[in-house]
Amino acid sequence: MCASSRLGSMPIVSFFFRLLQLLFICVPFSLVASEDVLKGDIINWCMSIWCFCFTVSLFIFLVEFCGLQSRLPFSWDGFLYAYAFNFAIVCLTTSIIFGTAHIQFLSPGPTRDRATTATAFSCIVAVLYAIEVAWVYVRPGDISCFVPTLPGMLRRLENIVACLILTINSSRSLYQHQPALEWCVAVYAICFILGAVNFLVNGSDCDNDKKLPIPYPRFLQGQTVLSLLLYASALVLWPLYQFSEKLGGQPQRSSDDSCSDHHTSFICIWDLRLTVTILTAINLLLYVADTAYLAREALVGTQAWQKGL
């Protein structure tokens, strides 16, 4: 079935570009998996990200190689744009976190060389995905729902910040000692998934009102308001349980042993807690701005409807 359409429906440039993505994403995963020293929560998170990127890229390669794009019930160009945009961000974030969290603490030698090479190839993969974003955007195709707008940029920033928060929280020592902190991590995950679904649905088919069980504007409003409320709870609970001594937190950086000058094996946990707090506040502000824009849009729409009567 695939053999009949093979490269006839897949340009040579696209064919080799997909192969590069698949090969380059295999390198960091293989290098880290083969090194027993490179273990831990953050490393396991990075490996799961690379594995997921490889799986989706392989799926896209097979669909294009077999010429099945036209048989899918959504805009293929929109899907490519959405996946490449998100994966460029995810791979870049993973590269930064992996590099800063581990390379600086490794002694010179084969293990450090492997970690450095893995980080470099992860960055290259992020660049390849970013190139694909630009390529899909400029070539002829239907991605009209991706024309840059203020609310669209806000929603992309929301997902970028959520991706950073989740990557940092891949270290379970940040939250596993308190149910309230586990709730916060669940909030970050839920909001990120909802944002990714929104991005993919809007990008895969601009005319999604006819295919979704609810109108897309209602879905967008519900997702934004729910995320706003969830982040508001996280902004209260996360710093309260992380920095209040009465609730088991550490109000001072000096009270965290991982932040002492003589400690050279792990990153400073207290700094990560503070970083997540700041990123939570930033994302809450983004959701407030997004909600305000949606409220203004609904108000203008109501007034226009009344004038139309």
Rank of each mutant, 00 (worst) to 15 (best):
A101H: 03
F87A: 07
F74S: 12
F146R: 11
C163F: 09
T119L: 05
M153F: 10
V136L: 10
T119G: 12
D113A: 15
I143L: 05
Q104L: 14
R156V: 07
T111P: 00
F85I: 07
D77L: 00
V127H: 00
D77G: 05
L80N: 01
L80P: 07
A130Q: 01
I89P: 03
V138R: 11
A162C: 15
Q104V: 12
I124K: 03
T116N: 08
A84Q: 03
F98D: 06
C91H: 10
A126T: 11
S107R: 13
I96R: 11
T117Y: 06
I143H: 02
A162K: 04
R114Q: 02
A84V: 09
R114P: 00
D142H: 03
F121I: 00
G109Q: 05
A126R: 00
L154T: 00
G141E: 00
F98G: 06
F105K: 14
Q104M: 13
T94F: 10
P108F: 04
L150Q: 11
S107Y: 07
L157C: 02
V125T: 10
N159G: 08
F87M: 14
I89N: 08
P110K: 09
I124W: 00
R155I: 01
D77P: 09
T119K: 09
L92E: 02
S122A: 14
G99I: 02
L154K: 02
A120K: 05
L106H: 11
L106Y: 05
T116L: 07
Y129E: 06
F74H: 08
P140A: 11
R112L: 14
P108W: 07
T119E: 12
V127P: 02
I89R: 05
T93R: 05
I103F: 14
A162Y: 07
T111D: 10
G78N: 06
Y129C: 06
A101R: 09
F121L: 02
I89T: 13
I96V: 15
E132R: 13
I103W: 08
T94E: 13
L92R: 07
C91K: 09
Y129V: 00
C123M: 13
A162Q: 12
T94L: 03
S122I: 03
R156I: 13
F98S: 07
A130G: 08
P151M: 08
I96K: 02
P151I: 05
T116V: 14
Y129L: 03
R112T: 12
I131F: 14
E158C: 03
T117E: 08
V147H: 05
V90R: 10
V127E: 05
I131C: 13
A162R: 06
V90N: 14
G141M: 01
A115W: 03
F121W: 05
T100D: 01
P140F: 11
M153H: 02
